[in-house]
């Protein structure tokens, strides 16, 4: 096994171990309050809420996390009697979103407030999807727009259209290049792994909290490795400067599996 594969395996084992070990711990994190506040605002204004679960299919982990967020939003919408509209760009996401919302409305005890036609599919083409959703948003004037999941060039087109009509816009994505657009246009933005963490925090399940602890363990491992390499490279530079280049080559080979 190459050294980069070994590093990946260690990371996997550390995260999995942390998740399984902390499974029964009590949750120390509360729900993110902005989402409930936004849905309450929509109820006060008697205007709908829009939820856009990204533009990728169900095989994308960000779409799966977005659907976890959808469950929480749907529960709030059911409780506050806010019409929830979910435009999607993939048919498998449409089916899954319907199941998630159905379960959320049932759990909240308001299944009569839910209709599967609230989830609508338009096209797989991201720009065609944006054109459709922008049109829907401009006509329906929702009070709140949630944008969670994987977005590419369509992020700013959706965020600006939402900002122009909605009272509150909340976004979350782990796509680094799209984060600045959401930060500039939305009221609240969940950045990178914050987005994954938020879906777990909001659910409040012990299993999801365990995931957060796994994530923390992974971060500790990453920080440990980075610090160790930095400290060792400085020590080499100070005490054995002639070995500095060889040290860097060894590190490079280790991280790239010796393939370069």
């Amino acid at each position: 096994m190459s050294s980069d594969s070994l590093l990946l395996l260690i990371t996997l084992v550390v995260i999995a171990a942390a998740m399984l070990r902390h499974r029964d711990r009590k949750s120390e994190v509360d729900c993110i309050p902005e989402i409930e506040v936004a849905v309450r605002k929509a109820a006060e204004l008697n205007r709908p809420a829009y939820f856009i679960p990204g533009s990728r299919d169900i095989d994308n982990i960000q779409t799966i996390s977005a659907l976890s967020m959808l469950k929480v939003v749907a529960r709030y919408c059911a409780e506050y009697d806010v019409e929830l509209i979910i435009p999607v760009s993939k048919s498998m996401v449409m089916e899954r979103a319907r199941e998630v919302c159905n379960a959320a409305y049932e759990e909240a005890g308001f299944s009569d407030r839910w209709s599967s036609s609230q989830v609508s599919y338009t096209t797989d083409d991201p720009l065609g999807f944006v054109a459709h959703v922008d049109g829907m948003i401009a006509r329906a004037k929702p009070a709140v727009c949630f944008m969670f999941g994987f977005f590419a060039g369509e992020s700013l087109l959706l965020a600006e259209s939402s900002y122009n009509v909605a009272e509150v816009t909340i976004a979350g994505t782990a796509v680094p290049s799209q984060i600045p657009f959401f930060v500039a246009s939305c009221d609240t933005t969940l950045i990178g792994e914050e987005f994954f963490a938020a879906s777990a925090m909001l659910s409040g399940n012990q299993e999801d909290i365990a995931m957060l602890q796994g994530l923390d363990a992974g971060k500790q491992l990453a920080i440990g490795i980075i610090l160790a390499v930095v400290v060792l490279s400085y020590l080499t530079l100070i005490f054995k400067p002639e070995m500095y280049e060889s040290f860097l080559t060894i590190v490079d080979n280790l991280l790239h599996g010796g393939g370069r």
Partner: peptide
């Protein structure tokens, strides 16, 4: 920083589903 933490986040979420620790993957209950 974002790339590293996002990758760790992806691993953690994926493991949650692989290890069967998710309540909401198959219809809620």
């Amino acid at each position: 920083a974002v790339l590293i933490t996002v990758s760790l986040g992806v691993i953690a979420v994926a493991l949650k589903y692989i290890l069967g620790m998710s309540r909401d993957m198959f219809g809620g209950q």
